[in-house]
Simulated scan of single mutants.
Amino acid sequence: MSEPSARRGRRRAPRGSGEQLRGEILDATTELLLKTGHAKDVSIRAVAQRVGVTSRSIYLHFADKDALLDAVCARYFEELHTEMQRAVEGKVSTLEELRAQGMAYVRFAIAKPELYRIATMGEGRPGSDVDAALTSSAFVHLRESVASLISEGVYPPGDPTTLTLELWTAAHGVAAMLIAKPYLPFGDPLTFADNVLRAVCTGHMAIGIVGVDSDPGQTLQWVLDNKGVR
């Protein structure tokens, strides 16, 4: 279906249904982002044409293009939040929940690479809706799991926010590599992701046992000792 045909097929929201129109604006912006792959190629005018309204109607809901893009990215992370909640269903331990959350994050990212790149690798602004989404949804889920592991004595004592950022950075790195360099010899992408996340998650368990101040040599010796190797 051509873009003009798509616009003709889209019904304009009835008068007074502001939330419906706002949703259509976000849908249209998302479609354009997926089509172009770049935020700079998406304009207020193009969004208005796709929805079938005037540019002024867009500005009634969003102050400017940055605010519109922030709202699209925030909605993306709300969807991620839902996927991460679903991922922990049926898990019997907090460590399994954490691992499942990380995998849900990676799966969601590689399923929507264009949106993920724009939402997480674009230029951000402190205090934006995107920041609010990250701290109130996906990040909060990870932090709750990490805090539980610390309280259970599985992870070493410390600031759960800092440790969560470390784990999140690992998940983001895996997702970013799979999206940006899909031709590298990763093998099965999800198996690769699971191996990395498992190593990171269990690595913090070892740090908790050996001690956060131990050097690599001490950690290696502990590993060898517990494998029965002298």
Rank of each mutant, 00 (worst) to 15 (best):
A63D: 14
G203Q: 11
A133Q: 08
S93I: 08
A48V: 06
A100K: 09
V72E: 15
A6Q: 12
A28C: 01
D188R: 00
A39Q: 14
I150K: 03
E24M: 13
S93T: 13
G127D: 03
S2I: 12
L95W: 05
R11D: 12
M1K: 02
P157R: 06
R7E: 14
I44G: 00
F192L: 01
T219R: 11
K112F: 09
L68C: 11
R45Y: 07
A48M: 12
D70Y: 02
R50P: 10
T162M: 03
V88Q: 08
V196D: 05
L224F: 13
G228L: 07
S55Q: 09
G122L: 07
E166W: 11
L115Q: 11
G18W: 04
C201R: 02
A100C: 13
M177L: 14
R22T: 14
M84C: 00
V174A: 01
T30H: 02
I58N: 08
S55W: 03
G153E: 05
V174I: 10
D66Q: 15
R11P: 00
R15P: 03
I44Y: 06
A171V: 03
I207G: 04
G173P: 06
E97K: 10
L33S: 08
L80M: 15
L167W: 04
D66S: 10
S137Q: 13
S137H: 06
P4V: 08
I207W: 12
M84Y: 07
D194S: 09
L68P: 07
A48K: 11
L33Y: 02
T202P: 00
E3L: 09
A132C: 08
L32I: 08
S57V: 08
N195H: 12
T82E: 14
E24R: 13
T29C: 15
A176P: 00
G208K: 04
A180S: 12
T169C: 05
P185N: 09
